[in-house]
Simulated assay, not measured.
Amino acid sequence: MSRFQMTLRDELPTVGDLVVPPGVTAGLAVFDRRTGQFVQQLDADRAFRSASVVKLLIVLDFLWDRGPDHDVPDADRERLEVMLRSSDDDAASYYWEELGGAAIVDRMAERLGLTHTAGPPATHPGFWGYVAITAADTVRIYRYVLDRAPLPVREYVMDLLHRPTRYGTDGFDQYFGIASVFDADFSLKQGWSGFHGSSGYQSDRAKPVAALDLVSDALHTTGTVGVDDRTIVAVFTLHPSGTQYGKAYTDVTRLTRTLTVPGAVRSAGSWVITTGEGVRVRTAPNTSGGILGHLPSGVEVLVSGQAQGELIDVPPRSSDWWAYLPKYGGYVTNVYVGSGAPKLPGVPVCQ
């Protein structure tokens, strides 16, 4: 389909008017590498449990004395790739044990000058996802990779971060935040913890809340945006325990949309809420089209056009129009998109 330049049809403020959605606790930092200055910060030194963002420290510690060009067995290359591209928890757990657990964090904090990063609480020594980390320290990690790491390490790590899979190995859609808002020039290391079905580091709600919040659901989007990784973005968020993943996904993406990000190209389209659970995205506007993925329940998605196709009748809704989702490269029936009108108002027809 053709590309369309469209106006966002919602009540979010314009870019630069930072808005944290109600009920969300956030810490964020946006750093422009071209100017060497922070563009935006909000509670940038507030500690959050890292979830999978700690995998950045794990891979850097593993490569510290060897680099990817030598002394890395094929099995480790495969394990590191799935850990970074698909946020695999088994790989992280393997290296957490092999490399000394919290000693990884201690070593990397000293090496990179991290000021508020620490190992898991004493009550949870084996939980790598409970490492304490901040948005400001995450910027320091990316700055090390991009500006100070040996070239082979930089190229290896950033190549993997530039090629994230749509879904993590645990089945969670990891294209929220940075990946939903910006066009192709981005890298990602996401994190999620506590949502139903997430593995490896679920919140232990039998434990009291410590200084580091282990109870609220956590969803983080970190990475780089723009040509030559111009801007580093780190957004950490907490959500009330029991929040649906689709709502947290939407809230993090909405927050990311209000950031000022130099060098970014924002994806064009309209943001529309979906209904239903496990809605299929297909290669064509019909049920014969191949399945590209499934949408989290109640998530806001970017729609750039719509096309007529197979009639879908799910009373009280019925429609032969299908919305095109550019971030998925496929279609979803309008029966599960928007307020229920057969045709989405204000959305152009695909050419």
Rank of each mutant, 00 (worst) to 15 (best):
residue 5 Q to W: 15
residue 13 P to C: 03
residue 27 G to H: 01
residue 29 A to P: 00
residue 31 F to W: 12
residue 38 F to M: 07
residue 42 L to F: 01
residue 45 D to S: 14
residue 45 D to R: 15
residue 50 S to Y: 05
residue 52 S to I: 11
residue 52 S to C: 06
residue 53 V to G: 00
residue 58 I to V: 14
residue 76 D to V: 03
residue 76 D to L: 08
residue 76 D to N: 13
residue 78 E to A: 13
residue 80 L to P: 03
residue 83 M to Y: 12
residue 101 G to L: 03
residue 106 D to C: 11
residue 106 D to A: 14
residue 106 D to K: 09
residue 108 M to E: 10
residue 109 A to I: 07
residue 119 G to K: 06
residue 122 A to H: 15
residue 128 W to R: 05
residue 130 Y to T: 02
residue 138 T to A: 09
residue 140 R to S: 08
residue 142 Y to T: 08
residue 149 A to L: 02
residue 154 R to M: 10
residue 154 R to F: 11
residue 171 G to H: 03
residue 180 S to T: 14
residue 180 S to D: 14
residue 182 F to E: 01
residue 183 D to R: 12
residue 186 F to I: 12
residue 188 L to H: 03
residue 190 Q to E: 11
residue 193 S to Y: 01
residue 195 F to Q: 02
residue 208 P to L: 11
residue 208 P to I: 07
residue 220 H to P: 05
residue 220 H to F: 13
residue 222 T to N: 02
residue 227 V to W: 10
residue 229 D to Q: 12
residue 232 I to D: 04
residue 233 V to T: 01
residue 237 T to E: 12
residue 249 Y to F: 09
residue 250 T to Q: 01
residue 250 T to S: 08
residue 256 T to I: 06
residue 266 R to S: 11
residue 268 A to D: 04
residue 270 S to M: 15
residue 272 V to E: 02
residue 278 G to L: 10
residue 279 V to H: 08
residue 280 R to D: 06
residue 283 T to N: 06
residue 286 N to P: 08
residue 289 G to H: 10
residue 290 G to V: 07
residue 306 Q to W: 00
residue 311 L to D: 14
residue 318 S to D: 09
residue 327 K to E: 09
residue 328 Y to I: 03
residue 329 G to S: 10
residue 330 G to A: 07
residue 332 V to L: 00
residue 337 V to C: 05
residue 350 C to F: 05
residue 350 C to T: 10
